[in-house]
Design a protein around this nucleic acid. Structure first.
Length: 566
RNA sequence: GCUCUCGUAGUUCAAUGGAUAGAAUUCAAGUUUGCGGUACUUGCGAUGCAGGUUCGAUUCCUGCCGAGAGCACCA
Protein backbone atom coordinates (compact mmCIF):
# COMPACT_ATOMS: atom_id res chain seq x y z
CA UNK A 1 0.00 0.00 0.00
CA UNK A 2 1.46 3.36 -0.96
CA UNK A 3 1.15 6.55 1.03
CA UNK A 4 -1.84 7.78 -0.97
CA UNK A 5 -3.85 4.63 -0.33
CA UNK A 6 -2.73 4.63 3.26
CA UNK A 7 -3.94 8.16 3.92
CA UNK A 8 -7.14 7.55 2.02
CA UNK A 9 -7.88 4.49 4.11
CA UNK A 10 -7.26 6.32 7.36
CA UNK A 11 -9.54 9.14 6.26
CA UNK A 12 -12.23 6.65 5.37
CA UNK A 13 -11.96 5.02 8.78
CA UNK A 14 -12.15 8.36 10.51
CA UNK A 15 -15.19 9.49 8.65
CA UNK A 16 -16.94 6.18 9.20
CA UNK A 17 -16.46 6.65 12.90
CA UNK A 18 -18.19 10.02 12.54
CA UNK A 19 -21.14 8.06 11.21
CA UNK A 20 -21.66 9.99 8.02
CA UNK A 21 -21.58 8.66 4.50
CA UNK A 22 -19.91 11.15 2.22
CA UNK A 23 -17.39 11.13 -0.55
CA UNK A 24 -14.34 13.24 0.02
CA UNK A 25 -11.36 13.92 -2.17
CA UNK A 26 -7.71 13.29 -1.59
CA UNK A 27 -5.50 14.87 -4.20
CA UNK A 28 -2.13 16.39 -4.91
CA UNK A 29 -2.08 20.14 -4.36
CA UNK A 30 -0.73 22.16 -7.26
CA UNK A 31 1.65 24.03 -5.03
CA UNK A 32 4.47 22.04 -3.40
CA UNK A 33 4.33 24.21 -0.33
CA UNK A 34 0.85 22.81 0.35
CA UNK A 35 2.28 19.37 0.95
CA UNK A 36 2.10 16.03 -0.80
CA UNK A 37 -1.61 15.46 -0.46
CA UNK A 38 -4.62 17.52 0.50
CA UNK A 39 -8.19 16.63 1.35
CA UNK A 40 -11.46 18.52 1.42
CA UNK A 41 -12.92 16.18 4.03
CA UNK A 42 -13.45 19.00 6.54
CA UNK A 43 -15.70 20.90 4.11
CA UNK A 44 -17.88 17.86 3.65
CA UNK A 45 -18.04 17.16 7.34
CA UNK A 46 -18.66 20.81 8.11
CA UNK A 47 -21.65 20.81 5.85
CA UNK A 48 -23.21 17.83 7.60
CA UNK A 49 -22.36 19.10 11.08
CA UNK A 50 -23.23 22.69 10.24
CA UNK A 51 -19.97 23.83 11.76
CA UNK A 52 -17.03 25.59 10.18
CA UNK A 53 -14.64 23.50 8.09
CA UNK A 54 -11.69 24.78 10.14
CA UNK A 55 -13.22 23.50 13.33
CA UNK A 56 -13.91 20.08 11.85
CA UNK A 57 -10.36 19.91 10.58
CA UNK A 58 -9.02 20.82 14.00
CA UNK A 59 -10.97 17.95 15.55
CA UNK A 60 -9.75 15.43 13.02
CA UNK A 61 -6.08 16.23 13.10
CA UNK A 62 -5.03 14.54 16.37
CA UNK A 63 -6.34 11.13 15.31
CA UNK A 64 -4.92 11.51 11.81
CA UNK A 65 -1.54 12.36 13.26
CA UNK A 66 -1.63 9.32 15.47
CA UNK A 67 -2.62 6.87 12.75
CA UNK A 68 -0.24 8.24 10.14
CA UNK A 69 2.81 8.92 12.29
CA UNK A 70 4.78 6.27 10.39
CA UNK A 71 4.70 8.04 7.05
CA UNK A 72 3.71 11.64 7.67
CA UNK A 73 6.04 14.43 8.75
CA UNK A 74 3.28 16.89 9.56
CA UNK A 75 -0.40 17.62 8.99
CA UNK A 76 -1.71 21.15 8.69
CA UNK A 77 -4.94 23.05 8.29
CA UNK A 78 -4.73 25.50 5.46
CA UNK A 79 -6.85 28.08 3.69
CA UNK A 80 -10.58 27.76 4.23
CA UNK A 81 -10.26 24.27 5.72
CA UNK A 82 -8.04 21.99 3.66
CA UNK A 83 -6.03 19.38 5.49
CA UNK A 84 -2.54 19.10 4.04
CA UNK A 85 -0.31 16.08 4.49
CA UNK A 86 3.46 16.33 4.32
CA UNK A 87 5.19 12.99 3.79
CA UNK A 88 8.45 12.09 5.38
CA UNK A 89 11.20 12.52 2.81
CA UNK A 90 12.32 8.92 2.94
CA UNK A 91 8.76 7.70 2.36
CA UNK A 92 8.34 9.83 -0.72
CA UNK A 93 11.73 8.99 -2.15
CA UNK A 94 11.11 5.30 -1.64
CA UNK A 95 7.93 5.51 -3.68
CA UNK A 96 9.74 7.39 -6.43
CA UNK A 97 12.25 4.55 -6.63
CA UNK A 98 9.44 2.16 -7.43
CA UNK A 99 8.86 4.10 -10.62
CA UNK A 100 12.09 2.66 -11.96
CA UNK A 101 10.18 -0.55 -12.61
CA UNK A 102 7.35 0.77 -14.73
CA UNK A 103 7.23 0.04 -18.42
CA UNK A 104 4.72 0.78 -21.18
CA UNK A 105 4.52 -2.94 -21.88
CA UNK A 106 2.46 -3.75 -18.80
CA UNK A 107 -0.67 -1.84 -17.77
CA UNK A 108 -0.08 0.58 -14.95
CA UNK A 109 -3.61 0.47 -13.53
CA UNK A 110 -6.35 -2.12 -13.35
CA UNK A 111 -9.73 -0.39 -13.50
CA UNK A 112 -10.77 -2.36 -16.57
CA UNK A 113 -9.11 -5.69 -16.00
CA UNK A 114 -10.80 -8.48 -17.96
CA UNK A 115 -12.79 -6.01 -20.03
CA UNK A 116 -12.80 -5.80 -23.79
CA UNK A 117 -13.30 -2.54 -25.59
CA UNK A 118 -14.02 -2.02 -29.24
CA UNK A 119 -12.60 1.25 -30.49
CA UNK A 120 -13.40 2.58 -33.94
CA UNK A 121 -11.48 5.50 -35.38
CA UNK A 122 -9.93 7.13 -38.44
CA UNK A 123 -12.54 5.79 -40.90
CA UNK A 124 -11.21 7.11 -44.23
CA UNK A 125 -13.28 6.37 -47.30
CA UNK A 126 -11.70 4.45 -50.14
CA UNK A 127 -11.63 6.51 -53.37
CA UNK A 128 -11.33 9.66 -51.34
CA UNK A 129 -8.28 11.38 -49.99
CA UNK A 130 -6.83 10.59 -46.61
CA UNK A 131 -6.73 14.24 -45.67
CA UNK A 132 -5.50 16.13 -42.64
CA UNK A 133 -8.94 15.83 -41.06
CA UNK A 134 -8.37 12.09 -40.66
CA UNK A 135 -5.32 12.73 -38.52
CA UNK A 136 -7.53 13.96 -35.69
CA UNK A 137 -9.67 10.87 -35.06
CA UNK A 138 -6.67 8.66 -35.70
CA UNK A 139 -4.57 10.46 -33.13
CA UNK A 140 -7.30 10.70 -30.51
CA UNK A 141 -8.46 7.14 -31.14
CA UNK A 142 -5.00 5.71 -30.82
CA UNK A 143 -4.34 7.67 -27.62
CA UNK A 144 -7.65 6.62 -26.06
CA UNK A 145 -7.05 3.01 -27.05
CA UNK A 146 -3.71 3.09 -25.31
CA UNK A 147 -5.16 4.80 -22.25
CA UNK A 148 -7.75 2.02 -22.04
CA UNK A 149 -4.95 -0.52 -22.36
CA UNK A 150 -3.01 1.18 -19.59
CA UNK A 151 -5.96 0.77 -17.23
CA UNK A 152 -6.15 -2.91 -17.98
CA UNK A 153 -8.58 -3.33 -20.87
CA UNK A 154 -8.09 -5.37 -23.99
CA UNK A 155 -8.72 -3.07 -26.94
CA UNK A 156 -9.80 -4.18 -30.39
CA UNK A 157 -9.06 -1.48 -32.94
CA UNK A 158 -11.57 -1.01 -35.71
CA UNK A 159 -11.54 1.00 -38.90
CA UNK A 160 -14.87 1.43 -40.69
CA UNK A 161 -14.73 2.45 -44.30
CA UNK A 162 -17.28 3.62 -46.83
CA UNK A 163 -16.43 1.63 -49.94
CA UNK A 164 -19.87 2.03 -51.49
CA UNK A 165 -22.12 5.01 -51.99
CA UNK A 166 -22.47 8.11 -54.08
CA UNK A 167 -18.95 9.35 -53.45
CA UNK A 168 -17.56 6.17 -54.96
CA UNK A 169 -19.91 6.28 -57.93
CA UNK A 170 -19.08 9.94 -58.51
CA UNK A 171 -15.37 9.13 -58.57
CA UNK A 172 -15.83 6.27 -61.01
CA UNK A 173 -17.98 8.39 -63.27
CA UNK A 174 -15.38 11.14 -63.11
CA UNK A 175 -12.52 8.85 -64.04
CA UNK A 176 -14.46 7.32 -66.90
CA UNK A 177 -15.21 10.74 -68.32
CA UNK A 178 -12.22 12.94 -67.54
CA UNK A 179 -10.12 11.71 -70.45
CA UNK A 180 -6.96 10.94 -68.54
CA UNK A 181 -4.98 7.74 -69.06
CA UNK A 182 -4.99 5.19 -66.25
CA UNK A 183 -1.88 5.12 -64.07
CA UNK A 184 0.50 2.35 -65.04
CA UNK A 185 0.74 -0.70 -62.83
CA UNK A 186 4.16 0.25 -61.48
CA UNK A 187 3.20 3.82 -60.63
CA UNK A 188 3.30 4.75 -56.95
CA UNK A 189 0.25 4.32 -54.76
CA UNK A 190 0.41 8.00 -54.03
CA UNK A 191 -0.01 8.84 -57.70
CA UNK A 192 -2.73 6.29 -58.17
CA UNK A 193 -4.67 7.73 -55.28
CA UNK A 194 -4.16 11.26 -56.56
CA UNK A 195 -5.66 10.05 -59.83
CA UNK A 196 -8.73 8.84 -57.98
CA UNK A 197 -8.92 12.20 -56.25
CA UNK A 198 -8.95 14.03 -59.58
CA UNK A 199 -11.75 11.74 -60.71
CA UNK A 200 -13.79 12.70 -57.67
CA UNK A 201 -13.21 16.40 -58.22
CA UNK A 202 -14.08 16.07 -61.91
CA UNK A 203 -17.23 14.11 -61.15
CA UNK A 204 -18.37 16.51 -58.46
CA UNK A 205 -17.86 19.51 -60.69
CA UNK A 206 -19.63 17.85 -63.64
CA UNK A 207 -22.59 17.03 -61.41
CA UNK A 208 -22.80 20.63 -60.33
CA UNK A 209 -22.63 21.97 -63.91
CA UNK A 210 -24.93 19.38 -65.36
CA UNK A 211 -27.38 17.89 -62.82
CA UNK A 212 -28.94 15.34 -65.20
CA UNK A 213 -25.79 13.16 -65.09
CA UNK A 214 -26.89 12.20 -61.61
CA UNK A 215 -28.90 9.44 -63.28
CA UNK A 216 -25.71 7.92 -64.67
CA UNK A 217 -23.98 8.11 -61.31
CA UNK A 218 -26.95 6.51 -59.57
CA UNK A 219 -26.72 3.65 -62.03
CA UNK A 220 -23.06 3.12 -61.24
CA UNK A 221 -23.91 3.27 -57.54
CA UNK A 222 -26.57 0.57 -57.90
CA UNK A 223 -24.22 -1.55 -59.96
CA UNK A 224 -21.60 -1.49 -57.23
CA UNK A 225 -24.11 -1.90 -54.44
CA UNK A 226 -25.34 -5.07 -56.04
CA UNK A 227 -21.79 -6.39 -55.96
CA UNK A 228 -21.45 -6.73 -59.71
CA UNK A 229 -18.03 -6.96 -61.24
CA UNK A 230 -16.31 -3.65 -61.99
CA UNK A 231 -12.61 -3.50 -62.87
CA UNK A 232 -12.04 0.17 -62.08
CA UNK A 233 -13.82 -0.23 -58.75
CA UNK A 234 -11.71 -3.22 -57.74
CA UNK A 235 -8.45 -1.49 -58.71
CA UNK A 236 -9.36 1.77 -57.08
CA UNK A 237 -10.31 0.13 -53.80
CA UNK A 238 -7.05 -1.82 -53.76
CA UNK A 239 -5.00 1.33 -54.38
CA UNK A 240 -6.80 3.26 -51.68
CA UNK A 241 -6.45 0.59 -49.06
CA UNK A 242 -2.78 0.04 -49.83
CA UNK A 243 -2.18 3.73 -49.57
CA UNK A 244 -4.04 3.98 -46.26
CA UNK A 245 -1.92 1.17 -44.86
CA UNK A 246 1.25 3.13 -45.62
CA UNK A 247 -0.13 6.04 -43.64
CA UNK A 248 -1.16 3.86 -40.69
CA UNK A 249 2.42 2.59 -40.62
CA UNK A 250 3.73 6.13 -40.40
CA UNK A 251 1.22 7.05 -37.70
CA UNK A 252 1.81 3.90 -35.69
CA UNK A 253 -1.68 2.41 -35.72
CA UNK A 254 -2.29 -1.31 -36.14
CA UNK A 255 -5.95 -2.12 -36.71
CA UNK A 256 -7.35 -5.46 -35.67
CA UNK A 257 -10.40 -5.27 -37.91
CA UNK A 258 -11.48 -3.42 -41.02
CA UNK A 259 -15.19 -3.16 -41.66
CA UNK A 260 -16.58 -2.05 -45.00
CA UNK A 261 -19.96 -0.56 -45.65
CA UNK A 262 -20.37 -3.04 -48.45
CA UNK A 263 -20.43 -5.86 -45.91
CA UNK A 264 -22.81 -4.29 -43.39
CA UNK A 265 -25.42 -2.44 -45.39
CA UNK A 266 -27.58 -5.53 -45.92
CA UNK A 267 -27.71 -6.27 -42.23
CA UNK A 268 -28.52 -2.63 -41.50
CA UNK A 269 -31.25 -2.52 -44.08
CA UNK A 270 -32.70 -5.79 -42.86
CA UNK A 271 -32.80 -4.55 -39.28
CA UNK A 272 -34.61 -1.39 -40.32
CA UNK A 273 -37.10 -3.28 -42.46
CA UNK A 274 -37.83 -5.79 -39.72
CA UNK A 275 -38.54 -3.01 -37.28
CA UNK A 276 -40.84 -0.99 -39.49
CA UNK A 277 -43.34 0.19 -38.42
CA UNK A 278 -42.51 -0.82 -34.87
CA UNK A 279 -39.51 1.50 -34.55
CA UNK A 280 -39.15 3.15 -37.94
CA UNK A 281 -41.88 4.43 -40.20
CA UNK A 282 -42.46 5.18 -43.84
CA UNK A 283 -42.57 8.79 -44.86
CA UNK A 284 -42.58 10.22 -48.36
CA UNK A 285 -41.31 6.96 -49.77
CA UNK A 286 -38.37 6.70 -47.39
CA UNK A 287 -38.02 4.87 -44.11
CA UNK A 288 -37.26 7.24 -41.27
CA UNK A 289 -36.83 7.30 -37.52
CA UNK A 290 -38.83 10.00 -35.81
CA UNK A 291 -36.34 11.32 -33.30
CA UNK A 292 -38.73 13.98 -32.07
CA UNK A 293 -40.25 11.56 -29.60
CA UNK A 294 -36.99 11.64 -27.65
CA UNK A 295 -36.12 15.28 -28.26
CA UNK A 296 -34.08 14.65 -31.41
CA UNK A 297 -34.91 15.04 -35.06
CA UNK A 298 -36.11 12.79 -37.87
CA UNK A 299 -33.52 11.02 -39.98
CA UNK A 300 -33.79 8.94 -43.11
CA UNK A 301 -32.45 5.39 -42.75
CA UNK A 302 -33.49 4.00 -46.13
CA UNK A 303 -34.05 6.39 -48.99
CA UNK A 304 -36.84 6.09 -51.51
CA UNK A 305 -34.50 4.30 -53.92
CA UNK A 306 -34.39 1.53 -51.31
CA UNK A 307 -30.74 2.25 -50.58
CA UNK A 308 -29.68 2.43 -46.93
CA UNK A 309 -28.17 5.73 -45.86
CA UNK A 310 -25.30 6.30 -43.49
CA UNK A 311 -27.66 5.78 -40.57
CA UNK A 312 -28.82 2.28 -41.54
CA UNK A 313 -25.29 1.24 -42.45
CA UNK A 314 -24.14 2.37 -39.03
CA UNK A 315 -26.68 0.02 -37.48
CA UNK A 316 -25.19 -2.78 -39.55
CA UNK A 317 -21.76 -1.72 -38.38
CA UNK A 318 -22.85 -2.10 -34.75
CA UNK A 319 -24.17 -5.59 -35.41
CA UNK A 320 -20.96 -6.54 -37.19
CA UNK A 321 -18.84 -5.50 -34.23
CA UNK A 322 -20.95 -7.66 -32.00
CA UNK A 323 -20.32 -10.60 -34.34
CA UNK A 324 -16.58 -10.03 -34.49
CA UNK A 325 -16.03 -9.32 -30.80
CA UNK A 326 -18.95 -10.96 -29.01
CA UNK A 327 -19.77 -9.65 -25.57
CA UNK A 328 -17.44 -6.65 -25.58
CA UNK A 329 -18.01 -4.31 -22.68
CA UNK A 330 -17.81 -0.97 -24.41
CA UNK A 331 -17.95 0.22 -27.98
CA UNK A 332 -16.29 3.54 -28.66
CA UNK A 333 -16.66 5.47 -31.89
CA UNK A 334 -14.53 8.52 -32.55
CA UNK A 335 -15.67 10.93 -35.22
CA UNK A 336 -16.09 14.57 -36.12
CA UNK A 337 -18.58 16.56 -34.11
CA UNK A 338 -20.77 17.27 -37.13
CA UNK A 339 -21.98 13.69 -36.69
CA UNK A 340 -22.95 14.14 -33.03
CA UNK A 341 -26.64 14.75 -33.61
CA UNK A 342 -26.99 11.89 -36.11
CA UNK A 343 -25.30 9.59 -33.73
CA UNK A 344 -27.78 10.34 -30.98
CA UNK A 345 -30.59 9.41 -33.36
CA UNK A 346 -28.86 6.18 -34.35
CA UNK A 347 -28.24 5.31 -30.73
CA UNK A 348 -31.85 5.99 -29.83
CA UNK A 349 -33.13 3.81 -32.69
CA UNK A 350 -30.73 1.02 -31.80
CA UNK A 351 -31.81 1.31 -28.18
CA UNK A 352 -35.39 0.48 -29.12
CA UNK A 353 -34.26 -2.74 -30.76
CA UNK A 354 -31.20 -3.82 -28.80
CA UNK A 355 -31.05 -1.80 -25.57
CA UNK A 356 -27.97 -3.70 -24.39
CA UNK A 357 -26.00 -2.71 -27.51
CA UNK A 358 -27.02 0.92 -27.37
CA UNK A 359 -26.10 1.11 -23.72
CA UNK A 360 -22.46 0.32 -24.33
CA UNK A 361 -22.15 2.60 -27.35
CA UNK A 362 -20.03 5.66 -26.65
CA UNK A 363 -19.57 8.41 -29.19
CA UNK A 364 -16.63 10.76 -28.81
CA UNK A 365 -16.55 13.72 -31.13
CA UNK A 366 -13.73 15.99 -32.09
CA UNK A 367 -13.34 19.29 -33.91
CA UNK A 368 -11.71 20.09 -37.20
CA UNK A 369 -8.04 20.52 -37.85
CA UNK A 370 -7.50 23.94 -39.34
CA UNK A 371 -4.39 25.41 -40.82
CA UNK A 372 -3.99 29.16 -40.42
CA UNK A 373 -3.59 29.51 -44.21
CA UNK A 374 -7.21 28.71 -45.00
CA UNK A 375 -10.19 26.49 -44.57
CA UNK A 376 -10.47 22.96 -45.78
CA UNK A 377 -13.04 21.92 -48.27
CA UNK A 378 -13.64 18.36 -49.36
CA UNK A 379 -15.48 19.21 -52.56
CA UNK A 380 -13.49 21.86 -54.34
CA UNK A 381 -10.21 20.05 -54.56
CA UNK A 382 -8.11 22.09 -52.18
CA UNK A 383 -8.11 19.40 -49.51
CA UNK A 384 -4.73 18.89 -47.93
CA UNK A 385 -3.61 15.26 -47.97
CA UNK A 386 -2.35 14.05 -44.59
CA UNK A 387 0.83 12.81 -46.20
CA UNK A 388 1.56 16.27 -47.63
CA UNK A 389 1.25 17.76 -44.17
CA UNK A 390 3.61 15.19 -42.67
CA UNK A 391 6.09 15.85 -45.49
CA UNK A 392 5.84 19.58 -45.01
CA UNK A 393 6.58 19.23 -41.30
CA UNK A 394 9.49 16.92 -42.11
CA UNK A 395 10.98 19.35 -44.58
CA UNK A 396 10.89 22.12 -42.02
CA UNK A 397 12.79 19.85 -39.66
CA UNK A 398 15.52 19.09 -42.17
CA UNK A 399 17.88 21.79 -41.01
CA UNK A 400 17.70 20.54 -37.46
CA UNK A 401 18.16 16.95 -38.50
CA UNK A 402 21.45 17.61 -40.25
CA UNK A 403 23.24 17.73 -36.93
CA UNK A 404 21.37 14.74 -35.57
CA UNK A 405 23.21 11.83 -34.00
CA UNK A 406 20.60 9.37 -35.18
CA UNK A 407 21.53 6.51 -37.47
CA UNK A 408 18.17 6.37 -39.18
CA UNK A 409 17.33 9.94 -40.04
CA UNK A 410 14.34 9.14 -42.21
CA UNK A 411 12.68 7.26 -39.37
CA UNK A 412 13.61 9.99 -36.92
CA UNK A 413 12.21 12.70 -39.19
CA UNK A 414 8.95 10.78 -39.39
CA UNK A 415 8.79 10.23 -35.63
CA UNK A 416 9.37 13.90 -34.86
CA UNK A 417 6.98 15.16 -37.51
CA UNK A 418 4.21 12.77 -36.51
CA UNK A 419 4.93 13.49 -32.85
CA UNK A 420 4.63 17.23 -33.47
CA UNK A 421 1.28 16.80 -35.21
CA UNK A 422 -0.09 14.38 -32.63
CA UNK A 423 0.99 16.63 -29.79
CA UNK A 424 -0.84 19.57 -31.35
CA UNK A 425 -4.00 17.50 -31.62
CA UNK A 426 -3.81 15.99 -28.16
CA UNK A 427 -2.84 19.08 -26.22
CA UNK A 428 -6.40 20.30 -25.94
CA UNK A 429 -9.57 18.57 -24.77
CA UNK A 430 -11.27 16.73 -27.65
CA UNK A 431 -14.29 18.48 -29.14
CA UNK A 432 -13.13 21.88 -30.21
CA UNK A 433 -11.44 22.81 -33.46
CA UNK A 434 -7.69 22.58 -33.56
CA UNK A 435 -5.52 25.28 -35.02
CA UNK A 436 -2.35 23.67 -36.28
CA UNK A 437 0.59 26.00 -36.71
CA UNK A 438 3.47 24.09 -38.22
CA UNK A 439 6.31 26.25 -36.98
CA UNK A 440 5.02 26.32 -33.43
CA UNK A 441 4.48 22.58 -33.45
CA UNK A 442 8.15 21.91 -34.22
CA UNK A 443 9.63 24.81 -32.30
CA UNK A 444 11.47 22.65 -29.72
CA UNK A 445 10.65 25.45 -27.30
CA UNK A 446 7.58 25.54 -25.18
CA UNK A 447 4.64 23.21 -25.51
CA UNK A 448 5.55 20.89 -28.32
CA UNK A 449 6.08 17.25 -29.13
CA UNK A 450 9.71 17.76 -30.10
CA UNK A 451 10.36 19.49 -26.77
CA UNK A 452 9.23 16.38 -24.90
CA UNK A 453 11.06 14.06 -27.27
CA UNK A 454 14.22 16.09 -27.01
CA UNK A 455 14.13 16.05 -23.23
CA UNK A 456 13.72 12.29 -23.42
CA UNK A 457 16.68 11.91 -25.78
CA UNK A 458 18.85 14.07 -23.54
CA UNK A 459 17.87 11.95 -20.55
CA UNK A 460 18.89 8.83 -22.42
CA UNK A 461 22.41 10.07 -23.13
CA UNK A 462 22.70 11.43 -19.63
CA UNK A 463 21.87 8.05 -18.15
CA UNK A 464 24.31 6.31 -20.44
CA UNK A 465 27.02 8.60 -19.27
CA UNK A 466 26.17 7.83 -15.66
CA UNK A 467 26.28 4.14 -16.40
CA UNK A 468 29.67 4.41 -18.09
CA UNK A 469 31.03 6.13 -14.99
CA UNK A 470 29.67 3.37 -12.80
CA UNK A 471 27.12 5.50 -10.97
CA UNK A 472 24.23 3.49 -9.58
CA UNK A 473 20.64 4.68 -9.42
CA UNK A 474 19.92 3.92 -5.80
CA UNK A 475 21.73 6.18 -3.38
CA UNK A 476 20.85 6.06 0.29
CA UNK A 477 22.29 9.52 0.75
CA UNK A 478 19.79 12.27 0.07
CA UNK A 479 20.94 15.64 1.28
CA UNK A 480 18.48 17.98 -0.38
CA UNK A 481 15.50 16.06 -1.63
CA UNK A 482 13.98 17.41 -4.85
CA UNK A 483 10.51 17.51 -3.33
CA UNK A 484 8.77 19.13 -6.26
CA UNK A 485 10.11 16.74 -8.89
CA UNK A 486 9.37 13.77 -6.65
CA UNK A 487 5.81 14.90 -6.13
CA UNK A 488 5.28 15.43 -9.83
CA UNK A 489 6.69 11.98 -10.58
CA UNK A 490 4.33 10.41 -8.07
CA UNK A 491 1.39 12.18 -9.70
CA UNK A 492 1.63 10.24 -12.94
CA UNK A 493 -0.70 7.38 -12.13
CA UNK A 494 -3.38 9.81 -10.91
CA UNK A 495 -3.01 11.69 -14.17
CA UNK A 496 -3.47 8.51 -16.15
CA UNK A 497 -6.55 7.72 -14.09
CA UNK A 498 -7.97 11.16 -14.78
CA UNK A 499 -7.27 10.84 -18.50
CA UNK A 500 -9.17 7.57 -18.50
CA UNK A 501 -12.13 8.89 -16.52
CA UNK A 502 -12.38 12.11 -18.53
CA UNK A 503 -11.51 10.49 -21.85
CA UNK A 504 -8.99 13.29 -22.10
CA UNK A 505 -5.48 12.56 -23.35
CA UNK A 506 -4.70 16.26 -22.88
CA UNK A 507 -4.29 15.69 -19.15
CA UNK A 508 -1.26 13.54 -19.92
CA UNK A 509 0.18 16.22 -22.20
CA UNK A 510 -0.25 18.87 -19.52
CA UNK A 511 1.36 16.56 -17.03
CA UNK A 512 4.35 15.72 -19.21
CA UNK A 513 5.00 19.40 -19.82
CA UNK A 514 4.96 19.98 -16.08
CA UNK A 515 7.26 17.01 -15.55
CA UNK A 516 9.85 18.11 -18.09
CA UNK A 517 9.74 21.64 -16.74
CA UNK A 518 10.30 20.35 -13.26
CA UNK A 519 13.12 18.09 -14.36
CA UNK A 520 14.77 20.79 -16.43
CA UNK A 521 14.60 23.02 -13.38
CA UNK A 522 16.68 20.54 -11.43
CA UNK A 523 18.94 20.00 -14.43
CA UNK A 524 19.66 23.68 -14.55
CA UNK A 525 20.71 24.03 -10.93
CA UNK A 526 22.40 20.71 -10.23
CA UNK A 527 25.17 18.65 -11.67
CA UNK A 528 23.47 15.31 -12.07
CA UNK A 529 26.31 13.12 -13.23
CA UNK A 530 29.37 13.87 -11.13
CA UNK A 531 32.18 11.34 -11.33
CA UNK A 532 33.80 12.86 -8.22
CA UNK A 533 30.80 12.29 -5.98
CA UNK A 534 29.14 9.10 -7.13
CA UNK A 535 27.12 8.66 -3.95
CA UNK A 536 25.43 12.00 -4.24
CA UNK A 537 25.05 11.61 -8.01
CA UNK A 538 23.22 8.36 -7.54
CA UNK A 539 20.20 10.16 -6.13
CA UNK A 540 19.97 12.54 -9.07
CA UNK A 541 20.52 9.70 -11.50
CA UNK A 542 17.67 7.84 -9.86
CA UNK A 543 15.39 10.86 -10.35
CA UNK A 544 16.54 11.20 -13.95
CA UNK A 545 15.82 7.59 -14.66
CA UNK A 546 12.37 7.82 -13.08
CA UNK A 547 11.69 10.93 -15.18
CA UNK A 548 12.82 9.16 -18.33
CA UNK A 549 10.60 6.18 -17.52
CA UNK A 550 7.53 8.30 -16.93
CA UNK A 551 8.19 10.44 -19.97
CA UNK A 552 8.59 7.37 -22.17
CA UNK A 553 5.49 5.83 -20.64
CA UNK A 554 3.42 8.96 -21.16
CA UNK A 555 4.53 9.49 -24.73
CA UNK A 556 3.89 5.86 -25.56
CA UNK A 557 0.41 6.10 -24.08
CA UNK A 558 -0.28 9.09 -26.30
CA UNK A 559 0.97 7.21 -29.35
CA UNK A 560 4.02 9.46 -29.71
CA UNK A 561 7.42 7.89 -30.30
CA UNK A 562 10.21 8.65 -27.84
CA UNK A 563 13.52 8.42 -29.76
CA UNK A 564 16.68 7.79 -27.74
CA UNK A 565 18.78 9.96 -30.02
CA UNK A 566 17.79 13.13 -31.81
C1' G B 1 -36.56 29.70 -36.29
C1' C B 2 -35.28 25.01 -33.47
C1' U B 3 -31.28 21.67 -31.42
C1' C B 4 -26.25 20.86 -29.96
C1' U B 5 -21.26 22.67 -28.79
C1' C B 6 -18.58 26.76 -27.08
C1' G B 7 -17.05 32.15 -25.20
C1' U B 8 -10.60 32.40 -20.03
C1' A B 9 -4.03 36.93 -20.89
C1' G B 10 -2.48 40.20 -27.56
C1' U B 11 -2.43 34.84 -29.51
C1' U B 12 -2.91 29.16 -28.84
C1' C B 13 -4.63 26.09 -24.86
C1' A B 14 -5.55 24.24 -19.19
C1' A B 15 -8.30 24.22 -14.56
C1' U B 16 -12.86 16.20 -10.72
C1' G B 17 -17.65 23.04 -7.17
C1' G B 18 -12.10 24.59 -3.78
C1' A B 19 -6.40 27.55 -1.72
C1' U B 20 -3.10 33.34 -5.08
C1' A B 21 -7.48 31.02 -12.32
C1' G B 22 -2.33 27.48 -14.53
C1' A B 23 0.99 26.81 -19.09
C1' A B 24 3.04 28.20 -23.83
C1' U B 25 4.04 32.18 -27.08
C1' U B 26 4.98 37.55 -27.67
C1' C B 27 7.47 41.58 -25.08
C1' A B 28 11.09 43.23 -20.95
C1' A B 29 15.08 41.93 -17.53
C1' G B 30 18.39 38.18 -15.74
C1' U B 31 21.18 33.04 -14.72
C1' U B 32 24.91 29.75 -16.30
C1' U B 33 32.96 27.95 -16.02
C1' G B 34 28.29 21.26 -15.51
C1' C B 35 26.00 16.34 -18.31
C1' G B 36 23.08 18.06 -25.72
C1' G B 37 21.59 26.41 -23.79
C1' U B 38 16.68 23.38 -28.41
C1' A B 39 17.97 25.02 -20.84
C1' C B 40 16.58 27.76 -16.44
C1' U B 41 14.81 32.27 -13.34
C1' U B 42 11.85 36.85 -12.83
C1' G B 43 8.22 40.39 -14.65
C1' C B 44 3.70 42.36 -17.73
C1' G B 45 -1.12 40.28 -18.93
C1' A B 46 -7.51 37.02 -18.78
C1' U B 47 -12.90 34.17 -16.69
C1' G B 48 -18.44 38.06 -22.75
C1' C B 49 -22.75 40.69 -19.79
C1' A B 50 -26.64 40.38 -15.81
C1' G B 51 -28.94 37.59 -12.10
C1' G B 52 -29.47 32.86 -9.02
C1' U B 53 -27.86 28.28 -6.01
C1' U B 54 -23.43 27.52 -2.43
C1' C B 55 -19.22 28.31 3.21
C1' G B 56 -16.99 28.70 -1.80
C1' A B 57 -18.71 29.28 -9.09
C1' U B 58 -14.35 29.55 -14.92
C1' U B 59 -17.26 25.11 -13.54
C1' C B 60 -24.13 24.16 -11.82
C1' C B 61 -29.19 27.00 -13.08
C1' U B 62 -31.92 31.28 -15.81
C1' G B 63 -31.80 35.38 -19.25
C1' C B 64 -29.05 38.36 -22.77
C1' C B 65 -24.94 39.13 -26.30
C1' G B 66 -21.41 36.63 -29.60
C1' A B 67 -19.10 32.25 -32.48
C1' G B 68 -19.30 27.34 -34.82
C1' A B 69 -21.94 22.90 -36.29
C1' G B 70 -26.48 20.31 -37.37
C1' C B 71 -31.80 20.45 -38.74
C1' A B 72 -35.14 14.40 -44.74
C1' C B 73 -33.44 10.88 -48.60
C1' C B 74 -24.68 12.86 -49.25
C1' A B 75 -21.23 10.77 -45.76
Amino acid sequence: MNSYENIKQVLTEVIEKEDVTVTFLLSQPEDVSHGDYATNIAFILGKVRKTSPQECAKNLIPQLKEKLSEIVEKIEIAGPGFINFFLKDEVRTKEVKELLNISPEKPLLSFLNNQTIVCEYTDPNPFKLFHIGHLVPNTIGEALSRIYEQVGAKVERFCYQGDVGMHVATTIWGIENMKEPNPSAEDTLRNKVAYLGRGYVYGTQALKDNPPIKEEIININKHIFEGKEHKLYEDGKKWSLGYFQNIYDKLGTVFDYFIFESEVWQAGKKLVKENTPKVFEESEGAIVYKGEKVGLHTRVFINKEGIPTYEAKELGNCLRKEELVPGHNLSVVISGNEISEYFKVIKSALGEIYPEYAKKLLHISHGMLRLPEGKMSSRTGDVIPAEDLIDEVKSRLSERLEKSESTDKEQLANDIAVGAIKFSILRQAPGKDIVFEIDKSISFEGDSGPYLQYTHARLCTLLEKAKSLGISDSSEIILNPEKELEQVLLGYSKTLEKSYKDLGPHHIIQYLIMLTRSFNGMYGRTQIVDGNDKEKSAYYVMLSKATKNILAHGLHTLGIKAPERM
